[in-house]
Amino acid sequence: MADAFEFNVTIPSDTSQGHEVQERILSELEKVGFPDQDLFGVKLALEEGIVNAIKHGNGMDPSKNVLVECEYDGVRVRVVIEDEGPGFDPSEVPDPTEDDNIEKPSGRGLMLMRAFMSRVEYNDKGNRVILEKARTIDKD
């Protein structure tokens, strides 16, 4: 498939470098005509996933890295984000939409990733997340 691409990149725990990776993935997807309505969700999920890895995973430790693997097969984009932190249990993240949590300023990143992507899956350790989004098929 001519539209397919893939690359891996390792970055230090630096959010500005995280944004550069995001921009690279999005510009590659734009080049292959990934629909605008899908790009919004991919961008949001990448922002949340990469910031989580840098801040919560690696604790902003400059000696720790984040690995980002990106693969697009013409239909589906798959991004794997892995940090060097201790991991976490996603099932223990409180539901931010519960009345008791609604005014808490954190805990919404995971929920947004799940809402906007086709698949969000953590490894057992909880330091590696797979984000997948299948492109919307044009109706015309």
Binding site: V51, R108, G109
Partner: peptide, 10 residues
């Protein structure tokens, strides 16, 4: 055009 969960928290 874009807003993150960190922004929502703030």
């Amino acid at each position: 055009e874009y807003l993150s969960s960190a922004a929502l928290g703030k």
